[in-house]
């Protein structure tokens, strides 16, 4: 957001998910958003064929976090050649679960009056960070101690020019909550938590050193396979 705008949950820019040449003229670009706990798939559909398109419907394959359409895909009028329409699909997280590779991969089938088309896209795992992901401080300390060191992953966020308070505010807008901050030998250490829609907690330590644009992120989680995706979300949130 610009000056005076409230900062919202990080939404990636739209990318092309289905090029027209692979879908008999239907082009779809899209992204994912989370606003006040509502997860949505936001798509732009363009008809690059010479005939009208109608009767759109969408289905997801099973996926790691049970994302599924919470209603039908609403494309209310037929799509004429060269016409573009925006479609917003609310999602639930109680659909069938199957671990995907990569973890945040989503396989989608979309049909219209011409054919059925398939594509894959990836959502940022921060889409699944819930609004009540601030862990109790005592529970954080106990959990941090309890999770074995083997479950800790460390990453570097390079070239970040925010101070630790600005970083903390930016992350909080995406439901990454700072529980404690300490300054040791000129380094700010932020202890943070987030909770995924399926109840998995992630604990983080963010080290920010004055004058050093490289941050260190250490993540501790009982399901360490999510750490790589969480780190990618840290990068995306902090750099956008």
């Amino acid at each position: 957001g610009g000056v005076g705008m409230p900062m919202g949950v990080y939404t990636p820019p739209k990318t092309v998910w289905l090029p027209a040449m692979k879908a008999k003229g239907l082009e779809i670009s899209g992204t994912f958003s989370r606003r006040a706990g509502v997860i949505q798939m936001e798509m732009t559909l363009t008809n690059k064929a010479m005939s009208v398109m109608a009767d759109f419907a969408i289905q997801f394959n099973k996926n790691s976090f049970g994302l599924s359409p919470a209603g039908p895909l609403q494309v209310l009028t037929p799509l004429s050649p060269n016409q573009t329409v925006e479609a917003t699909l609310p999602l639930s997280n109680v659909g069938p679960v199957m671990k995907m590779e990569p973890l945040t991969n989503l396989q989608v089938a979309i049909k219209n009056n011409i054919d059925i088309f398939y594509f894959s896209c990836q959502y940022p795992i921060s889409l699944l960070f819930v609004e009540d992901g601030k862990m109790d401080r005592q529970v954080f300390l106990a959990t941090w101690k309890d999770i074995p060191n083997d479950n800790e992953s460390q990453f570097q966020v390079k070239d970040c020019h925010l101070n630790s308070d600005a970083a903390s505010n930016k992350l909080q807008a995406s439901n990454v909550f700072t529980i404690a901050k300490r300054t040791v030998d000129g380094q700010d250490m932020l202890y943070q938590s987030m909770k995924l829609t399926n109840g998995i907690w992630v604990l983080a330590e963010l080290k920010v050193q004055a004058g050093n644009p490289n941050y260190m992120v250490s993540l501790k989680c009982r399901a360490p396979e999510v750490s790589q995706c969480v780190f990618q979300s840290y990068e995306a949130i902090l750099k956008n």
Binding site: R137, L141, W144, A180, R182, V184, M189, S218
Partner: peptide, 20 residues
Amino acid sequence: EMEDGLDEAFSRLAESRTNP
């Protein structure tokens, strides 16, 4: 008193992570 204990515990955690 418990809050003081937690503040102290976070300080110890941060210290231990900076000077292991």
